[in-house]
Design a protein around this nucleic acid. Structure first.
Length: 669
DNA sequence: GATTACTCATGGGG
DNA sequence: CCCCCATGAGTAAT
């Protein structure tokens, strides 16, 4: 386990972000070992492998292709053992030491200046940095090397910071009086904020794999892909790069975004995409006013096809006309054919047939499979029970085992609620609000909003804006029937399944994508005041204990706040009025199946509201980052506080951790 | 180096 | 419910 700790401290140096608390990894990144060996980047390829780097560009730093970047596909889970951690550091470790010869790697005090380039660096941009007054108060804390070449933790950090800003802008916008005619675009605001303050990575445009971006990753805004270097145009669908050809420079496509609405799939095959070229008015919407020309993106796709140069494909999906558009990074595709077609308006349109490079972990294919499961056509493989809640939840929760013969977890009673023991008494029930049928986010007279420090805790779509020591929701007894603050009181919103993991018993994951900040579930069970309970009964497998110590992490960001000013920010860490333990051994909900990892994608947040003149205290789970379908949901269980203090030293839990994360503490519970 | 062109996402209103 | 449209950002091209 020392290895892991050593690893951790190295990471902190590599990441080069000033406040240590921002270093928290937020995603169970690809720690699974690759099930196969990587093909060489150049030269002839054995069958079954595909040329990811069919031409040599200026990117001498490009890492060898790692097809197994993704952690999502259940197919790869059998590979998942803790032993892989030490065996595979190069696969999953942050890449800067490989990508760019960073002299400062390993030194301890390289956290002070992101403008100073490490000596010996091969980076080209050596211009002494100009002062940009408008940005003077911003410091992203991301090094020059990190901005040029990303790695998993940095990519996740950039995305987390973008979304934190976006949520905050949306919250501020919600609180304003609705002025008509003004289009609110918190995504653009947050995006330019990140751009100007250097919260971005992979700025060096590249072909092929983008370090730190994994196949299957999902995005809710174009800007997100822009900030992590997956697809840089803020609107255009084709991104390209100009490279030196034999005679002259020519454009090569790097990535495309398919709008999803107008591009045709080739029948049912998720590995094929027919893509429409750009230009000529609006070809996709049949509003074309002129012929498309073989230039820019269209030319780039043509040249890429000639060179057998694969492009990244991002598929835009909309589940139904009511839901938001989601972008799924589906890996690399080869351009197999191109032709010209007359659009409905009679003008010429370029069409490209793209076929997915084989051997990549499934991403979009997972979505199409889930769609079928939902329709019930072929039922879910390994399905044991279609709904383990027996209708208690409004959305079914299936029980699945594709791993072994185990046909279910031990018996328990499914309940969506928390049952409080007699000894549990929260005094002084506070009054609710007297708003009308809805609480307006900007209304500072609302009692419930006041309790949250004046901010409405959620934005319109129910996404949590910031972590807080405590969130106060409106009560069932408040008059605001349509109030948007009762997020954790209305049950599940995503389609979950309980599945058998390879080495951690049963786990929880979702068929639906989950946006960062979305409510997932509460921890249901039998709640007790820990101070009034025998020590012995506090720590079985199905106990939530609010006094356990988790690794602190930073999820909230304020626009324009320099890192130095971060100390004025309020603490994010939970603060409860009493130590609470919830036992889900006999009675519980889906939360009892959520496993621990040291790099979680879910956090818990105390929420309280009043009900029948009593305070209800809940442990509610929210997504840290966007979570693609079929990704296991995990949170940091923390470790029990030892009787003696261990100043500064890591605390050790009672159970050995198998999460396999680079940041694994080695134990938990 | 500064300005224009290009692209079409996004969300609100009709 | 669907369609239309104003606004807008980053980057390539000029």
């Amino acid at each position: 386990m020392e290895g892991n700790y050593g690893c951790y401290s190295d990471k902190t140096r590599v990441l080069d972000i000033k406040p240590l608390r921002t270093l928290k990894p937020v995603f169970p990144s690809g720690n699974q070992a690759p099930p196969f060996v990587c093909a060489p980047p150049f030269g002839p390829f054995p069958s079954g492998f595909s040329p990811f780097y069919p031409f040599s560009s200026s990117q001498v730093n490009q890492q060898a292709p790692d097809l197994n970047q993704s952690q999502h596909p259940p197919q790869h889970q059998p590979q998942y053992t803790p032993q892989h951690q030490p065996q595979n550091p190069p696969q999953n470790a942050p890449k800067p030491s490989v990508v760019t010869p960073l002299k400062s790697f390993g030194s301890t005090d390289n956290t002070s200046n992101d403008d100073v380039e490490p000596e010996g660096s091969t980076l080209k941009r050596k211009t002494p940095k100009k002062r940009r007054p408008e940005n003077a108060n911003f410091e992203s804390g991301i090094s020059v090397a990190g901005k040029e070449n990303g790695y998993r933790e940095l990519v996740m950090d950039v995305l987390m910071r973008f979304d934190a800003l976006r949520r905050r802008f949306a919250q501020l916008e919600d609180a304003k009086e609705a002025s008509s005619g003004i289009i609110k675009r918190p995504d653009l605001k947050a995006g330019s904020n990140c751009m100007s303050s250097g919260v971005r990575t992979n700025t060096k445009k590249r072909h092929g794999i983008v370090p730190g971006v994994e196949i299957g990753d999902i995005y809710f805004f174009r800007f997100e892909m822009c900030l992590v270097g997956l697809h840089s145009p803020s609107m255009a669908g084709i991104d390209y790069l100009v490279v030196k050809g034999e005679a002259e420079e020519e454009p090569i496509a790097t990535s495309i975004v398919s709008s999803g609405l107008y591009d045709n799939n080739d029948g049912d095959n998720p590995d094929v995409l027919i893509y429409t070229g750009q230009g000529g008015g609006n070809a996709e919407k049949d509003k074309q006013s002129s012929d498309q020309k073989l230039e820019r993106g269209n030319l780039a796709l043509e040249k890429s096809m000639k060179r057998n140069s694969a492009v990244r494909v991002i598929r835009g999906l909309r589940e139904n006309s009511h839901s938001v558009k989601i972008y799924v990074y589906d890996g690399l595709y080869d351009i197999k054919e191109s032709w010209v077609e007359k659009g409905k308006s009679g003008h010429n349109t370029f069409k490209y047939k793209l076929v997915r490079v084989p051997g990549q972990p499934p991403a979009f294919a997972t979505w199409t499979a889930i769609k079928k499961w939902k329709a019930g056509l072929p039922s879910r493989q390994g399905l044991i029970l279609p709904d383990i809640t027996a209708g208690v939840e409004s959305i079914a929760v299936s029980l699945v085992n594709e791993v072994d013969a185990d046909n279910g977890p031990a018996y328990f009673t499914y309940s969506t609620t928390v049952k409080y023991s007699e000894s549990f008494r929260l005094t002084q029930p506070s009054i609710g609000c007297d708003c009308g049928n809805t609480c307006k986010p900007g209304n500072l007279n609302c009692h419930c909003i006041k309790k949250n420090g004046g901010d409405f805790p959620y934005i319109g779509n129910g996404v949590l804006v910031s972590r807080k020591p405590m969130i106060y929701e409106c009560s069932p007894s408040c008059p605001c029937s349509t109030c948007k603050s009762k997020v954790t009181q209305i049950g599940l919103k995503v389609r979950l399944e309980i599945f058998k993991t390879a080495n951690r018993g049963w786990g929880l994951r979702s068929w639906d994508p989950i946006r960062a900040g979305s409510f997932i579930c509460i921890y249901a069970g039998e709640a007790k005041d820990k101070s009034k309970v025998q020590q012995t009964m506090a720590n079985d497998d199905y106990t939530f204990d609010t006094t356990r110590v988790s690794t602190p992490f930073k999820w909230n960001y304020e626009p324009g706040l320099a890192e130095e000013d971060a100390s004025v920010e309020m603490s994010e860490e939970p603060d409860l009025p009493l130590p609470l333990i919830i036992s889900a051994k006999n009675v519980g909900n889906v939360a009892r199946f959520m496993n621990h990892t040291c790099s979680p994608n879910v956090f818990w947040q105390p929420v309280t509201y009043e009900s029948n003149s009593q305070l209800v205290l809940h442990v509610a789970f929210f997504a840290i980052s966007h979570i693609p379908p079929m990704t296991e949901l995990t949170y940091d269980y923390g470790v029990s506080r030892p009787s003696g203090t261990q100043n500064g030293n890591p605390l050790y839990g009672k159970k050995k951790c198998f999460c396999g994360s680079q940041y694994c503490r080695g134990s938990f519970g």
